[in-house]
Design a protein around this nucleic acid. Structure first.
Length: 463
RNA sequence: GGCGUCGUACCCAAGUGGUUUAAGGGACCAGUUUGCAAAACUGUCAUUCGCCGGUUCGAAUCCGGCCGACGCCUCCA
């Protein structure tokens, strides 16, 4: 019972076999730091998080690299527009990105290399490609990759370059390239670039976007590694070009498995600035979305299907997250966490089977819901053994280590709140229901929800 | 023009030709519980899978056609 994943390269579900035993080298395309990342970006990052967490659960030792693209057309444009240095812009958005990742409870990569720290490696790669006649320098000092030299080009994206529709933009771009499909490895300095340039054997300029990922991934993970992920829109041209230039330069196979997550739609359509449906984490926080609720909404669909994000789904997701939390609390109240039992219930095997089948989260969640309901029933009817209680706790912990739907951190109760709680407890003892209800209302206006349980009052922060 | 995806209940969403007379979640409604709530639990909720044909003993699943939605085809996760 081992992990099987869909490989974009072969278009098949394949058994996942790492190059070195239990070591998995994973590269995920990170953000271009010219703006705050939006919910669509995070769909991909959450998929990658689920993959990584599942690999870790299976016992693999995962080395995860996520790059930060801190020099490209958009970052330069932004820095000129805002009259700030490139570094100022990229630092600002890199920090914001890392904050958002952490808020969403996405496990951080082992390393977040910045493109500008790997210019030497990029130059080296380009030199190798020129030496092999797979790249050429134009009159302006830009370097292009010669697609003709890469017979396998188009395999990942399943595209034949002869069939490319010639868009206006492409034609405009076609200044001194041998073929319109050739892509830039190095872009010669232009007036507009201001003081943003690096020296190279071909004159000053800056790297193309695709070579950045090749250089960083190979520098950190070696020329040949296990997994490379991104969104479907990265398949072409970005990943196709990475393969061409990396395999061209090294003469070796670049990556064994390519995985891509589908797009996120917002209210049934593509995100676009004109519709104004691009949500940033900050805005979602203002709408009172919790990280768990967003995780559930984006992870409960299979990663290779389009998932629809909607503000209207918030209540539904909050409710599900609440159910998980209630179950967690139910087990805790029954001291399940104190029972030493690491044996997992039979349902775990089914859950594992589903997850091992190309991360079939919807099916796995179905299994979990059925088990959760059954177990809750057994607990409230007191028909559960101590061993089973312990194994329920173990399964729940495994589940949460993979999905992260339960916020296990107890909110700190301020003194003001706990003194109201004490008063309410007294009122309830005296059966002064009117006063108890007034206090409950008061707590709610202060943002705390109080519930009366068999074990007494339980407060939680309103989300 | 080329390549590809999808259409399953009020909504979301699994379904890998026969242990599926279609998982799971949400909403609704009814009930249990509760001082009242909340939460939780129980029950109800698609004879049917966009439409029409075909293959098969058997199709949501395979094939063909049609209708509808969508993605990629040079820098957007």
């Amino acid at each position: 019972m081992s992990l099987k994943i869909y490989n974009t390269l072969t278009k098949k579900i394949e058994k996942f076999i790492p190059i070195n035993d239990d070591q998995v080298n994973l590269y995920t395309c990170g953000p271009t730091v010219y703006d705050y990342a939006h919910i669509g970006n995070f769909r991909t990052f959450l998929f990658e998080d689920l993959l990584k967490r599942w690999l870790i659960h299976l016992g693999y030792n995962v080395r995860h690299i996520m790059n930060i693209t801190d020099v490209d057309d958009k970052t330069i444009q932004k820095s000129i527009q805002q009259k700030k240095t490139l570094f100022f812009i990229t630092e600002k958005y890199t920090k914001a990105f890392l904050r958002d990742l952490s808020w969403l409870n996405i496990l951080p990569a082992d390393h977040f290399p910045k493109a500008t720290d790997y210019i030497d490696q990029m130059i080296k790669l380009i030199k190798d490609l020129i030496k092999k006649d797979m790249a050429y320098i134009d009159q302006g000092g830009s370097v292009y990759f010669r697609i003709k030299s890469s017979p396998k080009y188009g395999l990942l994206a399943n595209l034949k370059i002869e069939n490319h529709q010639k868009s206006k933009r492409v034609l405009n771009d076609e200044y001194s390239k041998e073929s319109i499909n050739d892509f830039a490895l190095w872009k010669a300095y232009k007036e507009e670039d201001g003081d943003i340039y690096w020296d190279s054997p071909w004159g000053k300029g800056r790297p193309g976007w695709h070579i950045e990922c090749s250089a960083m991934s190979m520098a950190e993970l070696g020329c040949h590694f296990d997994l490379h992920c991104g969104g479907v829109d990265n398949i072409f041209p970005h990943h196709e070009n990475e393969i061409a230039q990396s395999e061209g330069a090294t003469g070796k196979k670049f990556v064994n498995y390519w995985m891509h997550s589908e797009f996120l739609l917002v209210d049934g359509g593509k995100m676009s600035k004109s519709i104004g449906n691009i949500f940033k984490i900050k805005e979602l926080k203002e709408l009172n979305f919790s990280a768990e609720s967003i995780r559930y909404q984006l992870l409960s669909a299979h990663y290779r299907t389009k998932v629809n994000f909607s503000k209207l789904k918030k209540n539904e997701n909050d409710r599900v997250v609440q159910r998980f939390l209630s179950f967690y609390n139910l087990l805790k109240i029954n001291n399940a966490d104190l029972i030493e039992n690491t044996i997992l219930p039979d349902e775990y095997l089914k859950f594992k089977e589903k997850m091992n089948n190309d991360l079939d989260a919807p099916q796995a969640l179905g299994v979990f819901f059925v088990w959760m309901k059954k177990t809750t029933n057994e607990i409230i009817n007191k028909k559960i053994s101590k061993e089973k209680m312990g194994s329920a706790w173990s399964f729940l912990i495994v589940f949460n280590s993979v999905f992260g739907f339960i916020d296990t951190e107890e909110a700190l109760i301020p003194d003001e709140i706990s003194s109201i709680l004490k008063m309410r407890d007294k009122a309830r003892d005296e059966k002064n229901w009117l006063y108890a209800d007034i206090l409950r209302g008061e707590l709610l206006t202060l943002g705390w929800i109080v519930e009366d349980t068999e074990q007494g009052q339980r407060v939680s922060k309103k989300k």
